[in-house]
Design a protein around this nucleic acid. Structure first.
Lengths: 206, 206
DNA sequence: TGAGTTATGGAACTAGTGGTCCATATAAAC
DNA sequence: GTTTATATGGACCACTAGTTCCATAACTCA
């Protein structure tokens, strides 16, 4: 799997050039999948959103499932990148964790319906039924965990989380809690409800 | 919505009798939906599992989506009934909550792949896109919350949870945590990982 | 300019979808 | 036995799914 686009031109300048930007198209597809899920998204939906013809999509991305996997990988890349930057810029590990959890409120305050986390949505939709996708999901979650573990360890160094606590378990807990919160948002929970849950989630770190 | 079967005979004994038990058939359908999700389940899947012909299914349950909604309602009924009985039989509210959370380990220890919670899976699959289903989901979650709130309040009376804590928020937290745990199980987390998360979840109640 | 290479648009294909319809079967009521 | 009501099996329908294919377009290199 390539993690960016399906076809890497081995010779850059020969043949007819692409009439679209692969990354832009990928992000358009990502948005559709994220909003609608894999099964509920048709090729027509994708073609319209990406603004290209069937042949181009197949040529460049290889088909629905392969396109989807690239979207998931791209989503995880962006997510991890953003959180790493957020952690680096945060005043403290503990504060980063708070901001991270509270970001679920944006899902519910924004104009559009909450979409959850694409990786967790994918885990939920496919479970273990598609081995390749299951592997992608497990790998993405591992990357999420790594960032959160770094945040926990920083908070421990800074004295905001007791040093004897298991950082790995806390990171897993935060991933699980975020997943739960996003699902509650999708299920219709309001901002007040989510805030109440977040407060309890944070209590477990004390 | 009827909450049991689609068609309530208004006159019980006239006409040709059903050749199948509606509740058994409903539970067969429920199993398929639970395992595969709504979109991934075809009418053929349902007909095979339920052991009846197309006409009978449409006659008795009204179509795929109506059948699905009846399955979700039935699932919620069974779930709430079981938890209420569990709470009544438990030695303490706190102990019930521990058993409740630990029940996610069965998903991962059993032979079959984890299926999550049908209600949360449905929330994740449909989000807000189908109003009728969104309403069903919200209502089921409310029922879950009610049981867990009763458990929390009992634990407060028994001195295992501080009485000044918001029982409603804790109930929401438990629903959210269970949802997160089930998603982690679907994503491939092992028993050890889940146990670690559960321990942290419980810490928030102290 | 011609050869080689890749991209594009659209038709065509196969398989399957959920849903409808109707003739027939099986029961109770009269 | 006839009527009335419901259930069943299976053919049938219109539609859409994802995918493949091919003729043509657009580019570089010799």
């Amino acid at each position: 799997m390539n993690h960016t686009v399906h076809k890497v031109s081995m010779a850059a300048n020969i043949g007819r050039p692409l009439e679209f930007d692969p990354e832009t198209a990928l992000e358009s597809a990502l948005n559709v999948f994220w909003t609608q899920g894999y099964e509920q998204t048709s090729m027509q939906d994708l073609l319209s959103a990406m603004g290209l013809s069937k042949s181009s999509l197949y040529q460049a991305f290889g088909g629905k499932q392969q396109l989807f996997r690239q979207c998931v990988a791209h989503y995880a890349d962006q997510f991890v990148k953003k959180q790493r930057a957020g952690l680096a810029a945060a005043p403290s590990g503990r504060r980063f964790i708070e901001v991270f959890l509270n970001s679920v409120l944006e899902d519910v305050n924004g104009m559009s319906k909450p979409r959850g986390c694409l990786v967790m949505n994918t885990a939920s939709e496919f479970a273990q039924s598609e081995p390749l996708i299951a592997r992608d999901v497990a790998q993405s979650i591992k990357r999420f965990r790594t960032v959160l573990r770094a945040a926990v360890e920083r908070a421990q160094r800074e004295g905001d989380i007791a040093p004897e606590r298991n950082a790995q378990a806390l990171a897993n807990y935060l991933v699980s809690s975020m997943s739960g919160l996003k699902t509650q948002a999708k299920a219709g929970a309001g901002a007040a409800t989510l805030k109440g849950i977040i407060a309890v989630v944070l209590k477990a770190l004390d």
